[in-house]
Design a protein around this nucleic acid. Sequence first.
RNA 1: GGGCGGAUAGCUCAGUUGGCAGAGCACUGCCUUUACACGGCAGAUGUCGCAGGUUCGAUCCCUGUUCCGCCUACCA
Length: 928
Amino acid sequence: MPSPLDKTYDSSVVEKKWSAHWAEHQLFQPRQTENPGSFCIVIPPPNVTGSLHIGHALNNTLQDILVRWKRMQGIQTLWIPGTDHAGIATQNVVERQLKEEGLSREDLGRKAFIDRVWKWRHQSGDTIIGQLKQLGASCDWDRLRFTMDEGLSLAVRKVFVQLYEEGLIYRGERLINWCPRCLTALSDIEVEHEDIKGTLYHIRYALVDAPNTFLTVATTRPETLLGDMAVAVHPEDPRYQQYIGKQLKLPLTTRTIPIVADPILVDREFGTGAVKITPAHDFNDFEAGERHGLKPLTILDFKARMDGSGLRTAMVDQSLLDSLDLKSVQAARPLVIEALQEQDLLIKEEDHPMALGKCYRCKTVVEPYLSPQWFVKTAPLAAPAIEAVETGDIRIIPDGWKNNYLGWMRQIKDWCISRQIWWGHQIPAWYCRSCNKDHLGETETTTGETRESQDTAPSLMSCFISPNAQPIVSETDLTTCPKCGGSDLFQDPDVLDTWFSSSLWPFSTLGWPEQTQDFKTFYPNATLVTGLDILFFWVARMVMMGIKLTGQIPFRDVYIHALVRDAEGQKMSKSKGNVIDPLTKMSQYGTDALRFTMASMASPGRDMKLAEERIEGYRNFVTKIWNAARFIQLYEDGPKTDTPLASRPFPDQWIFSRLNHAIRAVTKALHDYRFDQATSHLYQFIWHEYCDWYIELAKPSLQQDNHPDAATTRQTLLESFEIIQRLLHPVMPFITEEIWQSFPHEGVSIMTQPFPTEREAWTNAQAEQRFSLLQSVVSTTRTGRALLNIPANQALSMFATTTQNDDAASLKHLQPHIESIMRSAMTLAPTTDWPSDRILQLVSGNLTIGIPVEPNLDLQLVVKKVKKQIEAKEKECTRLQERVASPKFREKAELSVIQESEERVTSLRQELTLLTSSEQQIATMLRS
RNA sequence: GGGCGGAUAGCUCAGUUGGCAGAGCACUGCCUUUACACGGCAGAUGUCGCAGGUUCGAUCCCUGUUCCGCCUACCA
């Protein structure tokens, strides 16, 4: 029911009201329409532990704009919401809670711990879902998914088994990135690199045969030399050629190691040209070790501490071994340095910039760690994923990120997917104890739930399952061994990388692997909207998995938006205290204002700096719209008429022409994912054309009794404003619904009304031309008023004329509109007919305006301004004249450009003549 | 080390198939005119990072350069 609008817009009341209304009428559900095709977006699932931050606000606002727009266009539209279990992140949060109770996850055991995480997930897990609803996100909430719900878990298992059977998933012992705090393997991209100032230590290694001859190696990690298995030199390096094959005495130990030649590892120019090889603790060295048949010797344990048994194997001097045992890397380094110095083996230390790898979840320094893990063989999956983007089957928008994607994809490495944590999809692989007698560690028991002391690496059980053990991979839980029929089996304790399940998201959420109706209708998805930060983590892997498993690309467009930073360009973080909380801003300025801000800042390919003033500015815009609605409502009552547009008065024709232009511009911008341009057109049109000019032009016919145009004006106002609401709705869903519902309407909600479409018949060049003439007259006159200090409310008797015949006719037509807007009487007559004294002439193109000058006005200021104007015009005129006179210009420039310049010179000269005569007039007035 | 992006008004940013440099905010002045002071009107503000080149003409194209971001990388 239509109802009068309140004086002020109360966003919180309005938002709650319409959110409930939309939910009640189930308007977010996909609806079959007569239009072919479908439009489906899957949400980038926020971490279930999370709460809405500004990045989510941006990401989901953009998605919602697209979804609401497509829905209004009458396309069957679905936006699937969901959350991610976020393995490591969530586990860390719950472990922190436990710690506050003085407990560890090992105290609880695996099952109880997982129960605890589930409990917590149920308690607070959907906080962010509520917040997304508050943002207005029009997801089909009935289809809410979670990466660990039953259907998705089944999909995960099925995929794992399929890829394993095809040889695309394998288990093997490799050097992987290890977080010694999270106690789990990480994939390469889960390591963040930080530049630090390191030190390069030059250390002497003595030759066994000639104890007074030394090779000097350079290293940034002296403590790892205890695990050295060789020293490499370049085979063509004359300094060292004669030593290749000889043995070195490894400092601080009783071991000897060989000197090997390796052209790959060694850069002759760097350091001393001799490199120590520590296969167990460096990725390059691991590969070099494989080339030379060197066995890795692990001297660091799973917590990145010096490992006593490893050190014994390394034959480290006993006294040093005792002092190093269980020391952290940081603590061990000075001890090793000291020991080297005592033996006069450290000859130089120099500053050396280097990059340190850190865990992306907890920022702990990661260590290369040798352990058996599960991997996805990526090369066969990457090839079609590269092709899809190269051929344009998948579009990446903006285009600039395409190379980023392709570059990464082309040199992709195998993906380590096993994590030694408990929260996640446990790997569907079982081991039979009797078949694998020799391949299972002794310390481990069957269930992985046994309580163990902190130092026996309880969560590392997989490390005790030798790489030679035979896993049985199965979609369903196994209780008997298919080989020996035994029943002593246990499941691999590792869980899968969180991103493994997210890589299935575009189809697992649609019911895949079942061929559901949803899957058939909505796959491939239309668009994926995401931030750049997860291009590799998520987008790349969805493309690989999507193509592999469904045989189709997962989505057609990938729209990548920027990261939100604060006004200074800093990344927002709680520790910096520069976080702008979207929820606070929503309650402060209204959700529509925040949404509009987000969209307006979404220029392609840049980071966006969010200044709070912008939200405030767009809140003002919301208020402006509100007040325009109230104005229209004031005059809503009264007769209307269906007069065709062509027969309506000039302002009506003009505003429809502009409205058509706005519809075209906004639609194109949305189509091009230019949310910034869409909002800018909306802002410009609504505020500076509709409110500033159309409403002002409409006032006389509404406010004067019995005005002949009253009925058509009312009609136009209502019609155009209703269209504007629909045009604005995808960006500002709440206020547009409130306004739309408050006016006479049909239908249950604006969100299921059609999005405005262009009507060529509305475009009216004549009306637009007339308008710009009107605008010139009004603006020029206002400038004159300001110049002459005539207050806006003081009536004026002014003169106008134009040298152009068309304009002269238009001027006559426009006279009543101009007079009412200016609150002035306008005399149309050539300047020669104007009173000769005390008239200020103002020029704008062909147009000349005359304004009477008050007798006692201080004209000095006016003279100054007119002079300034003359100066500027002269400068421009001179420049243009020079250009036009230049023979080269005449010869080479395009004809239209030459003509344009010439015309402009002519009109500038004309203006200058008039301005000069004005100046003289004023001078005369001053003298009199 | 490699790659990408940015540098335009005090601030945040648009922009140009190369031909009068724009918006919002902030600022100055006037105005409480019955939608709106979260408003209206008028105004001021720029060596378009720096240096070369191409061109009749460069903020835009090319080359180099300096800062600032980001991504990426196994030089110990």
